[in-house]
C-alpha cells in the first residue's frame, strides 16, 4: 500500500519505509524551504541528518529533518507560512502570535 502525503496542496506518494525527503525527491520536488538571507531554495544535501538543509514542518511541528522522518499516510508537509518565508521569520511570527494571545 502506498502512503499519501500532502505538500503545498499537492499529493505526494510514499512507499512504506521511505523517508519524507526521499518521497519528495522521487516526486520531483527538490527544494522545500528558502534561506534567511539570500532566499535561496534548499532541499536534500547530506541525506543523513548532519547538515540540517532539509528542514521541514511535519504535521505542524517545525524544523524536522526530512531525511530522518519516516513517511506516513496522511502526513502534512510544510505549512502555509513557509511558502518561501524563512525559518527565523516563522519563529518571530509564532512569538508575535503568542504575545497577542
Amino acid at each position: 500500500m502506498t502512503h499519501q502525503m500532502t505538500f503545498r496542496g499537492a499529493t505526494v506518494p510514499a512507499d512504506p519505509g521511505q523517508s519524507v525527503a526521499a518521497a519528495l525527491v522521487a516526486a520531483g520536488i527538490l527544494d522545500w524551504r528558502t534561506t534567511r538571507k539570500g532566499g535561496r531554495p534548499r532541499g536534500l544535501f547530506c541525506g543523513i541528518g548532519v547538515c540540517f538543509d532539509c528542514l521541514i514542518t511535519v504535521d505542524d511541528v517545525p524544523d524536522q529533518r526530512a531525511c530522518l522522518v519516516t513517511a506516513a499516510d496522511g502526513m502534512s508537509l510544510g505549512d502555509d507560512a513557509e511558502t518561501g518565508a524563512d525559518l527565523e521569520d516563522a519563529g518571530e511570527r509564532r512569538n508575535d502570535d503568542a504575545t497577542r494571545a
Partner: peptide, 23 residues
C-alpha cells in the same frame, strides 16, 4: 554547490540504499 540537485555522495548512496530512491 548550494543548488538543489547537489548532494553529498554519501547522501545519494543513503537515498539509494536506505530509501530505494534515485536522486
Amino acid at each position: 554547490w548550494d543548488l538543489p540537485g547537489v548532494m553529498t555522495a554519501g547522501g545519494v548512496q543513503a537515498l539509494l540504499k536506505g530509501h530505494r530512491t534515485a536522486a
